[in-house]
Amino acid sequence: MASTAVPNLKEQLRQLVGTPSISATDPALDMGNRPVVELLATWLEALNFKVELLPLKGNPLKANMIATLGGSSDGNGGLILSGHTDTVPYDEGRWQSDPFKLIERDNRLYGLGSSDMKGFFPLAIEAAKSFLNKPLRQPLTILATADEETSMAGAQALVEAGKPHGRFAIVGEPTGLRPIRMHKGIMMEAVRITGQSGHSSNPSLGANALEAMHSVIGELMSLRAEWQQKYNNPGFAVPVPTLNLGYIHGGDNPNRICGSTELQFDVRPLPGMHLTDLRAELQKRLASCIDNDRIRLEVISLFPGAQPFEQEQNSELVQTAEKLCGHTAGSVAFATEAPYLKSMGIDTIVLGPGDIDVAHQPDEYLGLERINPMVDILRKLIARFCL
């Protein structure tokens, strides 16, 4: 066994944090994750995992990695330990230390991605090491994805490829060692209105895009109220779907009729609400609130969106995780790759050692006290679903 070629847990995390893999909507900040998955592949191949790298179409610098140990590949069983390898950008000057250098202080490991969620991979590998010399009846898979923080393109590519195979999956997002079986989805949309500019002394000379946007905002707020009346899930801290008006810009001068304006907003739907249906309703309702033929309205999706997620309470995976963690499976408001795995018939929960409160923040860290309990939970899950 070539396990001596694999660094210890902290050294793995040091190398992962030290390998930048920022994904961002700004092309100037966006970079590939290929060096990270290649690093993971090197370690896992040394542990006798069968490793497959799957570059994303049109972007060879970004790739998913599927590493499998033992069992069969018929897709009828096994456990997947899944995480994304990209991070968000960081606030330069607001970190107390270099975000790409793992620093240990105050019983914490500081570094970009330590909590969300590069820190999950060394723990998964540490748990897997306990089973290298044991015959696994069902396969153990470690899955590493690309572009979760922006487009979910990595997860979507896996769905299109029908990979990986497995019966159960853990998505190691930061949940503070508490199992999560539900989360809201997210969609980000833009409304762009083009009118006709003109001298403000005579409104008939133009068509005011800002005034049309006033009608659009009123319609969005009415639609939000209707959705919140129709959909309610007490399992969430905010039990209704939300719609946030996040950005608006239009016009160029107070003495000109506004010729164009744009509004950007997000919707966080509950399980049972489907993005395709919501977008169709948005298109229909917003188009109907404009009755001026000199006004042109477009509704544009800023990214494909992430579906809401729900794993049934009676799932064997949920009940096993609840016993191991000592907590009832709950919900979170943030989105993950869990619905993509669930769409492939894989029972899935979200469970990881980090804290969402420090994710996407300066001085992101993983608490040392979380490491051994998470490794222990993963070992017991592997034993339950792979041996």
Rank of each mutant, 00 (worst) to 15 (best):
T68C: 10
S72K: 14
Q228G: 10
A383L: 13
I377R: 02
L61F: 00
V6I: 15
L123N: 10
C386S: 08
G354H: 08
V318R: 05
A46W: 08
A321C: 15
L205A: 09
E38Y: 11
K129C: 06
L177V: 09
A124C: 13
E219F: 13
L40A: 09
A280L: 01
I346V: 13
G172R: 05
M31W: 00
L275Y: 00
P339Q: 09
L278F: 03
A127I: 11
A124S: 15
Q196P: 06
I186F: 07
A2V: 07
P353D: 06
S200D: 04
G113L: 02
V267A: 05
V17W: 01
I217Q: 14
P122C: 09
L47S: 09
S200G: 12
T141E: 08
E337C: 14
Q229Y: 09
T4A: 12
P179Q: 08
V159R: 05
P269L: 01
G326T: 13
L378C: 07
A146N: 01
K10V: 15
S331V: 09
E312Y: 07
A67E: 03
L368M: 15
A67L: 05
P20I: 00
C258Y: 03
S73D: 14
I349C: 14
E310Y: 09
M188G: 04
G113E: 00
N107Y: 10
T261I: 04
S343C: 12
H360L: 01
R285F: 01
G198N: 11
I349S: 11
P373R: 10
H199F: 12
H183Y: 07
G246K: 08
L53D: 08
M182Y: 11
N76D: 06
K230Q: 14
V267D: 00
W43I: 09
A280G: 02
N233W: 08
E281F: 00
G354P: 05
K134C: 03
P55S: 06
L177W: 11
D147L: 01
S114M: 05
A383S: 14
T261L: 01
Y90K: 00
P271H: 04
R224V: 04
L177D: 11
R384P: 03
E189M: 15
G250T: 09
G198V: 06
E316I: 14
L109K: 05
Q15I: 03
R94D: 05
G195A: 06
W95Y: 05
C289V: 15
V51K: 03
S21T: 07
E126I: 06
A67Y: 06
A329K: 09
K380T: 09
L136E: 08
P35C: 04
A155L: 08
G119P: 05
E312N: 14
A46S: 15
P139I: 08
L54S: 13
M374I: 03
F168K: 13
V375N: 03
L132S: 07
T242K: 10
Q313G: 07
A41H: 05
Y110W: 11
R94Q: 14
L387E: 14
L13W: 11
N233I: 08
G185V: 11
H249Q: 14
L56M: 06
G326R: 11
E38D: 15
L263A: 05
R105K: 15
T320R: 14
L205S: 07
L158P: 02
G18R: 02
N244Q: 12
Q229T: 12
A207E: 07
P254A: 04
G246D: 08
E369W: 03
A161D: 02
